[in-house]
Design a protein around this nucleic acid. Sequence first.
DNA 1: ATATTATTGCAATATAGTTGCATTAAAAGA
DNA 2: TCTTTTAATGCAACTATATTGCAATAATAT
Lengths: 124, 124
Amino acid sequence: MKKRSTPAKKEVIKLLKSSESAMSQEMIEEKVKGKMDRVTIYRILNSFCEDGIIHRILSDEGKYYFALCMDCEPEEHTHDHFHFRCLTCQKVECLPEQVNVELPEGYKKKNATGWITGYCNNCN
Amino acid sequence: MKKRSTPAKKEVIKLLKSSESAMSQEMIEEKVKGKMDRVTIYRILNSFCEDGIIHRILSDEGKYYFALCMDCEPEEHTHDHFHFRCLTCQKVECLPEQVNVELPEGYKKKNATGWITGYCNNCN
DNA sequence: ATATTATTGCAATATAGTTGCATTAAAAGA
DNA sequence: TCTTTTAATGCAACTATATTGCAATAATAT
């Protein structure tokens, strides 16, 4: 199942590259309205996630956000950093700080996410 | 709008009290099957949340979990602690550790949540 | 230029949760 | 105890977010 390059994919990746923050499907749909179907956006995003080009983060309000992978190496593909969502402008950002928690005896960690909501520097 | 005590509410609160971990609507529905409607469960849970009797946490898979409030005081009702979800038994627990992150200059924190997924002491 | 099959669009479906409305039943008052 | 008031409930319908099936389209290899 070799992946193909299509106008729709180029459009979406261009969008994500030009965005300084993570985007939800909804935000992306807004931007590419008329150029492609809703479902196509979902499928493209999922495909990029599979390939490790972008990562998918479920926000504290239950929606997925997507962002380019920055410092990921193919072998060690983790995104255990904190995310910030601005309650005013809805901007979602990856924070540099890693999630690091002491688990009770006998517990094994597989994955970790952290969300901070609040107001960004432009919105307070 | 004074709240009333009903058999359904008693049933739900009893369940949450007897559970050592947080429960999703689905888990609760499973337990009270036949005794009340799906919608009633949702409404009861929301009502309890409003009253500060329980707290609602959105898990990293996008579902709400509910748990009794333990150390909450009416004035300072926060739940900025980490939560753990076991990938095998689906148990959700509140971890003692607080979420504490340094935000970039000019950002204001309103709320914070953290999720760790993995395997609990019974499941690995 | 042709064949193969990944990708797309559209309709339908899945999942989690909410809303409207008529009916039922707590609890306060007579 | 009986009435009255209105919160709570059950049912159906709806919303929002995301996925699946399938036929049509189009990107790549030959």
